[in-house]
Design a protein around this nucleic acid. Structure first.
Length: 929
DNA sequence: TAAGTCACG
DNA sequence: GACGTACGTGACTTAT
């Protein structure tokens, strides 16, 4: 059966780094098991990636010969040279081990040889095959992102193909990565070493230094023999002392291009076209439904099922553009009959609160979708008479009136992708869409932390379908059109596809939420919040443009004063807003001490650095600090907020993102109203511009110390819980416990330290971080932490438990069960894993607090209206809610808000500490606080 | 578009 | 033994 095909100069050999694929497939995807319990997540990821590669390679630059190459488990010849090589690698995860043989089966099912050899790594086989192919004049592409393979690159003949980034790496790419050409890569690697493979290198030499040295001396041997010439003492000593270690490193990183025998001849490699039957049978046995269907279709297997299947192919030319009432009525009838429809609105701008409705798309079944243009103006070609080219459409009012019963019918579920947007747009047309579902939120509930939840990304992942990019339709930059200017045929393809894809995603994601037991989370923390937020966004908050204008000119004057002073101290004018110029003046020209570098290698000029310099009496840093403060206040707040006022409402309408954060918090954009200044007196003036309508006041209600309270509950820390129950000053109590001083007459400095520790605990404390924050020695910080753990052992136990949980499962959960995935815990970089461990400590606390306030927000509108209050909720700032209420009802609203917010965890959970809420009222936000 | 900085919880 | 670290966000400016 082994067909062989000769290799010659027209051949193009593809060598796929299978082990790299496995690694990525395993870490990129959530765990998945076949119905018999066999873990198959990595197998699925591997098959998807291989299939996508084969599809992508059709067309240009087709492979003539292709194989997948794996590492052989166990030791390689490198261990004989250096026993420590890859010695620190943890064993493969338990649920990955049984997948190794399955992945090899999968490779063979693709009709591709599956190559490995005892004693050698995949990289050596790849190197040897590359050499053999080149000897016969063939081109080679290595599919991998492993930098160790860069030494094999040859201009125009051997390239690396990184499928994740969809990037080909030639000699230029190698030079970017290593600073030297492919032929010198091993020399550089010998110096740098590789911590993940345990290749030692020379201490103190990183990528920059290594490439510079090799550039200067040509190769490792020359460098080592002339090491005496190096000026930098430490570097010279290290090069001399660790010369042999560098030589060993070089042999370790040098790939073997001359293996005596290889498991399979190049001529026997596979082709790009798998045998359909074998592959389909394998995929079916793995229960990969979507991929099976895609492969069947592509390879001309059984015909696709009737439309109605979420994974059937998407055919844009089947979509209908609806321009008559008769056609619209047919679609409405189909919608009622279907019971579940997808809806998407198209508008002439991004902001849901300012944009005009331009069209609506509907899908009643997968593949059955239409677009209803309502306000397309004809293509804008600069012709002032463009309006005359306005295409025939149904009148907007008539269409809205016809659609309203469908969109409001309790018998028809309306599915949207980020439906908050559509709720808001349709609400302004007088339609209260209900009931609804949101595919973005369904995805967020099951896969939060694993990937984004935008439609294009979800379509690619779940349907293997690439949506038309918005940019492709409307363009980008200055020439960007709004959707109403797009021709109807093109608009129909784009808009109807969105509805079609949304409905298909719903058919996949909705059962998945149920199967993963996250339906309650979705129904109590996610779905209902969409309409609540849509109402808040639509309400907006009144902002006084005159106040902002006054502040803007005040700030401008302050900026100018500081700028003058800075220029005169520096002795010449420069751009104060340029950290680059500033760093050069402070540290290169003026030679001030204590300069740090940022990770980009530039001088750091952040506030902390400048504060330190200013404390030593330097005038210029002080002037810069002043300038920066006012520049920030002016541009980000005074000017930007004024520009964000909607002229139609006189109010600012932010957009809240529901699925943007890893913890469940909301985010606020365009403008961000969650970071309005409050900590400094100058900044607080901005808050005076946020005002209530005449006869009304703003009410602000915020949870007091909610994260520490939840920590006390979650970690079951008796001392903390008691303090909260008694209403004590928690930071003072912490200080008292730790340092044995009475709360009465406590030194504010001591309390400040305890406060920093309490915050640090929530962040997954480290001695370094605490020392940094408090400006104390690291040893002292370490003492503090140890003393804290002695006093509050429950907190230590909590932190250890979360570390273990995230390592074990790859996710942690809030007290309500919201799951937060952290795939980074499997990263090969130990710093990265530690970072993820701190996230795992913080996320349940931050996330539980987010859940609590979400529950309060969902409940409040109903409670307000039941109490007959003329009040509305306007903003959320993580632990704070802002309302606008008739002045005479402020006290009543405060009482209600406090009641609902502090009881928000019930009835789902009984929190063992009180969740106290503080509230106030005032004519502006600053006063309400 | 990335990096640096800084506003908030 | 060295390394690099407090958790979560978004916006603005400069520089590439």
């Amino acid at each position: 059966m082994a067909v062989t095909r000769p290799i010659d100069k027209d051949s193009h050999v593809y060598l796929i780094d299978g082990s790299g694929y496995i690694f990525r497939a395993y870490h990129a995807l959530p765990p998945l098991t076949r119905s018999d319990g066999t873990p198959v997540g990595a197998v699925q990821g591997f098959c998807n990636m291989l299939w996508k590669l084969l599809e992508d390679l059709k067309g240009e630059d087709q492979p003539s010969h292709l194989a997948v190459i794996f590492d052989y488990s166990g030791k390689s010849f490198r261990n004989e040279i250096y026993p420590e090589y890859k010695a620190h690698r943890p064993p493969a995860p338990e649920d990955l081990v049984p997948q190794f043989p399955l992945i090899r089966d999968a490779t063979r099912a693709f009709g591709t040889p599956c190559i490995e050899m005892e004693g050698f790594e995949a990289d050596d086989l790849i190197a040897t095959y590359t050499k053999q192919a080149r000897a016969k004049g063939a081109k080679v592409t290595i599919v991998s992102s492993d930098k160790d393979l860069m030494q094999l690159v040859e201009d125009g003949q051997v390239t690396l193909f990184d499928t994740m980034k969809n990037k080909r790496i030639g000699t230029e790419g190698v030079r970017e990565k290593f600073g030297v050409g492919p032929e010198k890569v091993i020399e550089v690697q010998a110096l740098i070493g590789d911590s993940s493979d345990n290749v030692p290198g020379v201490p103190g030499i990183g990528p920059k230094t290594a490439s510079q040295l090799i550039d200067e001396y040509g190769d490792l041997e020359t460098l080592l023999s002339r090491a005496e010439e190096i000026k930098q003492t430490k570097r010279r000593e290290n090069l001399i002392e660790f010369a042999d270690q560098a030589r060993i490193s070089k042999t370790l990183v040098t790939l073997k291009t001359d293996m005596e025998s290889v498991p399979e001849a190049l001529e026997a490699f596979g082709t790009i076209d798998p045998e359909s039957d074998e592959l389909v049978a394998f995929l079916k046995s793995m229960e990969f439904r979507t991929l099976t269907r895609r492969v069947e279709e592509a390879l001309g297997g059984p015909a696709a099922d009737e439309s109605g299947d979420a994974t059937a192919p998407i055919e844009r030319d089947k979509y209908e553009c609806v321009t008559t009432m008769a056609a619209l009525n047919d679609w409405i009838e189909a919608g009622f009959k279907a019971g579940v429809i997808a809806v998407d609105t198209e508008t002439d701008a991004l902001s849901s609160t300012a944009a005009g409705l331009v069209g609506i798309s509907l899908a009643t079944a997968p593949g059955k979708a239409c677009y209803i243009p309502l306000d397309h103006v004809g293509e804008d070609d600069g012709d002032l008479l463009g309006e005359s080219k306005r295409p025939d459409q149904i009148a907007k009012t008539e269409a809205i009136a016809a659609l309203k019963p469908l969109f409001e019918s309790p018998a028809v579920l309306k599915v949207g992708q980020n439906i908050k947007y559509d709720l808001s747009v349709l609400a302004r047309e007088g339609i209260a869409v209900a009931p609804y579902d949101d595919t973005m939120l369904l995805s967020y509930v099951i896969d939060g932390g694993l990937h984004g939840h935008g439609m294009d990304e979800l379509a690619e992942m779940h349907l293997g379908h690439q949506c038309i990019p918005f940019k492709e339709v409307c363009g980008t930059g200055k020439k960007q059109k709004h959707f109403g200017q797009i021709a109807l045929d093109k608009a129909t393809e784009y808009a109807a596809e969105d509805a079609d894809v949304t409905l298909r995603l719903w058919e996949i994601l909705s059962p998945s939420v149920t199967a993963k037991a996250k339906r309650t989370i979705y129904e109590t923390l996610e779905r209902p919040l969409a309409s609540v937020l849509a109402d808040m966004e639509r309400a907006g908050i009144k902002v006084d443009p005159a106040q902002l204008a006054r502040l803007s000119s005040d700030f401008a004057q302050k900026m100018a004063e500081h700028e003058d002073e800075a220029h005169s101290i520096a002795g010449k004018p420069f751009n104060l807003a340029s950290p680059k110029q500033l760093g050069e003046i402070l540290f290169d020209e003026m030679g001030l001490p204590g300069g740090k570098k940022t990770k980009g290698g530039a001088w750091s000029t952040d506030a902390q650095t400048l504060e330190n310099l200013a404390a030593e009496g330097h005038g210029l840093p002080q002037a810069i600090i002043g300038y920066r403060t006012f520049a920030k206040l002016k541009s980000t707040y005074a000017d930007a907020l004024k520009a964000a006022i909607n002229p139609a409402t006189g109010r600012v309408h932010t957009s809240f993102s529901l699925a943007a954060t890893s913890t469940g918090r909301l985010a606020s954009t365009d403008p961000n109203l969650m970071n309005i200044p409050i900590r400094t007196e100058e900044g607080r003036k901005i808050r005076e511009a946020f005002i209530a309508e005449p006869g009304n006041v703003l009410v602000s209600a915020d949870y007091s110390q909610i994260e520490l309270r939840l920590l006390a509950h979650i970690a079951d820390v008796g001392a903390l819980k008691d303090a909260f129950k008694r209403g004590e000053d928690i930071h003072a109590m912490t200080a008292s416990e730790m340092f044995g001083v009475p709360v009465e007459g406590m030194d504010p400095m001591v309390r400040r330290q305890a406060k920093a520790i309490n915050f640090g605990i929530i962040y997954g404390i480290s001695a370094f971080g605490l020392a940094n924050n408090l400006g104390i020695e690291r040893d002292k910080a370490k003492d503090f932490i140890e003393r804290y753990f002695e006093k509050f052992p429950g907190v230590k136990a909590y932190m250890d438990a979360k570390r273990e949980e995230v390592r074990d499962k790859g996710y942690v959960e809030t007290i309500f069960g919201r799951r937060m995935h952290m795939p980074g815990i499997r990263d090969k970089n130990p710093n990265m894993r530690q970072f993820v461990e701190r996230q795992a400590i913080n996320a349940p606390i931050q996330g539980s607090a987010a859940d609590v306030i979400r529950r309060a927000m969902i409940r409040l509108p109903g409670e307000i209206s039941a109490a007959g209050l003329e009040a509305r909720m306007l903003l959320q700032v993580h632990d704070e809610l802002v309302f606008e209420v008739k002045e005479s009802q402020a006290d009543e609203l405060i009482a209600l808000a406090k009641k609902v917010m502090s009881g928000a965890a019930r009835p789902a959970l009984e929190i063992s500490v009180p969740l106290d809420v503080e509230a106030g009222a005032g004519t502006h936000w600053g006063e309400a606080h």
